[in-house]
Design a protein around this nucleic acid. Structure first.
Lengths: 224, 224
DNA sequence: GCGTTTTATAACCGTTCTGTTACCGCATGC
DNA sequence: GCATGCGGTAACAGAACGGTTATAAAACGC
């Protein structure tokens, strides 16, 4: 589980990072808004914690930017009493908020709750239906077949599709989440990667059952 | 074995340093928090002893800073009665504590115990399956073969793998845990170390059975 | 001090992965 | 018809990766 934390208070950032690392999460840090947006695109974390006051781009702007491309759970850090900020954050699509100051313990509890609510808090093997992904080992297992080894990019793509299992994921979003920086013109990369992934996970790659094309928009993973 | 001691009481520092040097350890001293953090980064000691009250940065802060990059054993020196401090220290990831005042003999005993159990991350046994690691002697024994001498780094790597026996350990994590500070670009170090370790513990180093490669992610130890 | 061991750095090689280019088939629309 | 856009496939070259060897630098033991 990857968690992105954006806060310009270095001490607080360290404290939070430490607490979450201890709890077994992989922590990504961002000291300001632009970095947060870039890191989000590059790493596709499973949850985002945003401070509202940050240099470069406020938590609001970051929240908005992220919501354009993802439904990842977002937690906002607010200052007690600033009711207006809170309302605005929730309107922009934040999922939860926490008043400063708070204890790491509280944050951890809320994060766990949020992840649970977001669906499938799984530790190592991320399994949905017939698809079981082992991120550590870089392998997938389809139904009861032998595990197949995946490359870094294949793994990322499958992670993204699995996180949105059953729903179509936009090609542009996949490009951003898998490669992190590419412009949307680079469709060929995705085409190739899908093709290579199908060779590995489909019984009949020419007639895909799991990884289906949504013509004109993107791809989706069928796991029933 | 390098031990870093951080304490602003010069007399106590000298006493401890003397006792540990006599016992055969290499002692690094730090009179304050920032120095401790800097020395840790530069020297990557095998154990850290921290006083809680120090100028510059408290033992808590130093502990936190170290834990962000390493799982090195940390012992905290506390004042009897300050229960809260103790709890906080352990929460921050300290491994043991000692109430002041204490005798050098007691400290030495506790340090030895800490170093002994430092191998396995959650107190894992030093012997798993066919691999038996003797941290004190710097040796491994595979099945019933003769014990093999290991260097410090080889030992550290094997400790980390053994602590996660059967599971893949990420290359970046290994770099951090074995060297303590390296950036992830330094793959060559790990490559070399794995190679040297295989020469020592594998029956056929060209076809490793115990220390296997997980392509794209890291290495794992197979102990069945 | 000296020689030995250990660790770091560099270079080379084969394999795998990734990005690129090209081509094919198909549907759409003029 | 033909041009165009889109998705799938094939082929290839450069990059990245892991293993190996060699050599330099640092640490260690005496």
């Amino acid at each position: 589980m990857k968690i992105l934390i954006a806060d310009d208070d270095r001490d607080l950032l360290s404290l939070i990072a430490f607490a979450l690392t201890q709890a077994g999460y992989l922590v990504l840090r961002a000291p300001d808004g632009p970095t947060a947006i870039r890191t989000f695109a590059a790493e596709a974390p499973d949850l985002v914690v945003l401070d509202i006051n940050m240099p470069g781009a406020s938590g609001f702007q970051v929240c908005e930017a992220i919501r354009l491309q993802s439904r990842v759970p977002i937690m906002m850090l607010t200052v007690r009493g600033e009711e207006e900020d809170l309302v605005r954050a929730l309107e922009l699509g934040a999922d939860d908020y926490l008043n400063k100051p708070f204890s790491p313990r509280t944050l951890l509890a809320r994060i766990k709750a949020l992840l649970r609510r977001a669906g499938g808090e799984a530790g190592a093997p991320l399994a949905v239906g017939r698809v079981a992904l082992d991120v550590d080992e870089h392998t997938v297992r389809i139904s009861d077949a032998a595990p197949v080894r995946l490359t870094k990019l294949e793994l990322r793509l499958l992670q993204m599709l699995l996180a949105n299992a059953g729903r179509t994921v936009n090609s542009d979003r996949l490009l951003v989440q898998v490669w992190g920086h590419r412009n949307s013109g680079d469709r060929q990369l995705l085409k190739q990667l899908v093709h290579r992934l199908r060779q590995k996970i489909e019984a009949d790659p020419a007639n895909p059952v799991l990884l289906q094309t949504a013509a004109g928009s993107g791809y989706k993973l069928i796991v029933e």
